[in-house]
Design a protein around this nucleic acid. Structure first.
Lengths: 338, 338
DNA sequence: GGCTGGCTTGGAAACGTTTCGGACACGGGG
DNA sequence: CCCCGTGTCCGAAACGTTTCCAAGCCAGCC
């Protein structure tokens, strides 16, 4: 920048002003500065910029689990887009699985002076964020220990409409497969129960299946077991996209051993869901909007444009019916090949 | 840091040394400093750290396309893990689709003083990176205009074994569906042709199908068209994961209209591939390793540990056979004609 | 003509580190 | 006793910006 100033024959401050939109600089001077910038190929150093008193970097942090899960990937993609439009980059913290690793990752990011944090929180207390002086938005799940913005999905409503759908079809023995102890899962179960109560049908507690782990294998095993009981369920509600995969795999393998193949409803849509031999109805929400909202909210907080008390944004869920034979409108959108 | 120094009754430099491993500091002094750090909740400011002459930040940049594509997501996840182990964060540049947007995003990241760039390049010249003074690793595809490390997959070999597999099964009319003009796609086609030549079978050029766009819809349309020709292919090789989806969707819809359902081989494995009514054999590679290698290489370059001339790492592809009867459930009557 | 006030402009201070030259103390060898 | 090396520590300089204050200039007004 000093070189630019020298070359243009102006002071340091003037160059800075030109670089930042150039208010209060005579047009002719600005021209000269811009010319010097081009000649020297000058590029502003964002690091030095963020060093200024009280300033933060123009980066947002995103802390989430396995990117390989389309759910997380969608959030990442959407928030990336929104941030990018405002000239912000997104820093991904390395995310170990344990809560301790999450805390370390977050502090790492804070030390990088990010302008805000978007966190899909694991269990564990997040009170340590309280005094960090950086805005935080939780995504998909609330966190304990700190009162911050949150963007999530209507989990209870989703669980409810899934159950309602099955109940309307006459199912009375519906199994629900639950990943371990996440907040979201609990809400989905609650909606499931409410729908039963509203329909006057009692939930068979032996069909409320808590998995030890939240992966497809555990769901596969549990499904096989429950379906081979003397009185198997006539429908299964799987509370998570990866679990649905396990359920379907189990059903596929059991195949002809079963008298009646159960109806399946899954939470969260997934690719190819409409092409499986057992087409699976699904409770879907606009996951990309989850990421977009979070990023937008965070940007507003970071810029100081939004000083409202912590917001709570809840996005609706909708049922996507499949298996009635007709193919649903293509939800895939345009995807670019590699 | 000044506060810490004051509190511990030491000089600024001493605190710095303690924070960075503490060589050349008496044990007792270090204790005092550490105590002060804890009391004050001091955390090193990474931004200021990166400002030092010649220093870069402890971040790696990752520039890639749609994170929603599991291929890209795997790369992101794997590189994130490797970077995290060395205390590096990963910055995702916002990626517009056009080459110009990619250039802008990259320069954005360079201005953030990242220690290195991992780029899954789009077309377009990357010569502007030449003098940037930051190490670059290209992932999955080479780029023009700059001589840098590259980590990729044996595309030609993959195309070859896909074709060999089908040829061995007696197929002589094999269609190949190609996304537009990427480097990787060209290599896959070349392998495809080589396998044919080796088998003494001529490629029917009317079955080499160039799509106008690299998405599932285009592949679906093209598949439908080719299968409804007077002499349709008996097998289809789809050069990309999303294309495979389109191919399968077309076949599913055509269904009974076809005399013989063609065999399908896709490039890149994907989730649920083994559970589809038409089980699809696949050419797979270790995509996560792509990301890991890239990150490792970049970290070594950034630290100066690796000063070799630009490397070229090529990962092997392997065939994952499906549909030989071992897995798919006997649901619909749509089995693969074998 | 002097004063006021609005544009421009220049330059110094500040941000939080790391690093480097130097200083001090201590001990051992000549 | 002097010299020198070693271990420890201090504090200033430097990194590349932004921002603030002061100053110069000019026009307009009294």
């Amino acid at each position: 920048m000093i070189d630019v100033a020298r070359r243009a024959g102006v002071g340091l401050g003037t160059v800075s002003r030109v670089v930042n939109g150039g208010h209060g600089v005579r047009d002719e001077t600005a021209q000269r500065v811009r010319a010097a910038i081009d000649e020297l190929g000058f590029q502003r150093n964002e690091v030095a910029r963020a060093l200024r008193p009280g300033k933060k970097s123009t980066s947002l942090a995103l802390v989430l689990g396995d990117l390989t899960n389309p759910f997380y990937a969608s959030i990442a993609k959407a928030s990336l887009e929104v941030a990018g439009q405002s000239g912000f980059a997104v820093v991904l913290g390395s995310v170990d699985e344990d809560p301790e690793g999450e805390k370390r990752a977050i502090q790492e990011l804070v030390s990088r002076q990010v302008a805000g944090l978007m966190i899909v929180p694991d269990q564990g207390d997040h009170a340590f964020l309280q005094g960090a002086g950086v805005p935080v938005v939780f995504v998909d799940r609330p966190a304990t220990g700190i009162d911050a913005d949150i963007v999530m999905v209507d989990n209870e409503g989703g669980g409810r409409i899934a159950a309602e759908h099955l109940l309307e079809q006459g199912h009375e023995r519906i199994a629900i497969i639950l990943a371990p102890s996440y907040y979201t899962i609990g809400r989905r179960l609650r909606g499931f129960r409410r729908a039963h109560r509203a329909a006057g049908i009692e939930v068979d507690e032996s069909l409320v299946i808590q998995l030890p782990e939240g992966n497809a294998e555990a769901a596969e095993k549990a499904t096989r077991e429950v379906m081979l009981r003397p009185d198997p369920p006539t429908a299964i509600f799987s509370s998570t996209n990866f679990l649905t995969e396990g359920v379907l795999r189990a059903l596929g393998e059991l195949g002809s051993e079963l008298d009646n193949e159960p109806a399946v409803v899954g939470f969260d849509d997934f690719r190819l869901a409409d092409m499986l031999p057992t087409p699976v109805t699904v409770v879907a929400s606009d996951i990309a909007e989850l990421g977009r909202s979070a990023a937008r909210l965070l940007l507003d907080r970071a810029s100081g444009a939004d000083t409202r008390p912590p917001q709570r944004i809840v996005l609706p869920c909708a049922l996507i019916e499949r298996g009635s034979g007709e193919r649903p409108p293509d939800s895939a959108g345009k995807r670019k090949a590699r």
